Simulated assay, not measured.
Amino acid sequence: MKVKKIHHVAIICSDYEKSKNFYVNILGCDIEKETYRSERKSYKLDLIVGGEYQLELFSFPDPPHRPSYPEARGLRHLAFEVEDINQAIEDLEKENIPVEPIRVDELTGKRFTFFSDPDDLPLEIYEK
């Protein structure tokens, strides 16, 4: 088997409206489709990032908590590429979203930093 690309990333949130606002209005993802699945009491929101990649945002009644820190096993974080990391940080801080200090990737020399979504999912911005 040889995979061609990442098709989508699925995120289960605890507060659908809060997470929808975060990913759409703060991070700037575009809504492709929003579906309410009554049999599951669940929303599924298909989001487009940069015109190409898809995030799926799900809501389920009482989802279990998944630890992220300290460095729990499993998916470590989701990274987004930005043109200007300083502007991205300024935009996040205007929304009262705490951002870690900028780091430099020792292999590429590129700047990056971390912040969290409303469910404390670790997210990264990585400067192009």
Rank of each mutant, 00 (worst) to 15 (best):
E93P: 12
S116N: 12
S38Y: 06
L78P: 00
S116D: 11
E34F: 00
V24S: 02
R76L: 06
L57F: 00
E90C: 13
I125M: 08
T35I: 15
P98W: 01
K18R: 13
V104H: 03
Y16N: 10
L45T: 00
P64Y: 08
L55A: 05
N25D: 06
E71K: 07
I85C: 04
H77A: 09
I6V: 13
I31L: 08
V24T: 12
I31N: 05
P61E: 04
K18Y: 01
C29V: 04
H7R: 13
Y69F: 13
E93H: 09
I31D: 11
E32C: 08
D84V: 05
E106N: 12
A88H: 01
Y23M: 10
I11E: 01
E81S: 03
E81R: 03
A88V: 03
F114I: 06
H65G: 11
N21R: 11
S14D: 07
V99N: 05
I125Q: 01
G109Y: 01
F112W: 14
I31G: 04
C13E: 01
I97R: 01
K4F: 15
Q54N: 10
Y53S: 06
G50D: 09
Y53A: 06
G51D: 13
G28T: 07
I85E: 06
A79C: 10
Y53Q: 12
H7Y: 15
V24M: 06
R73K: 12
K110R: 14
F58P: 00
C13F: 00
D120H: 11
E39D: 14
E124R: 15
I85W: 00
D62T: 05
A79H: 05
N25I: 12
S19P: 04
T35A: 10
P101Q: 13
L123W: 02
I12V: 15
E34C: 06
T108Q: 12
N86D: 15
S42L: 04
I97W: 04
Q54G: 01
A72C: 08
E95H: 15
R66P: 00
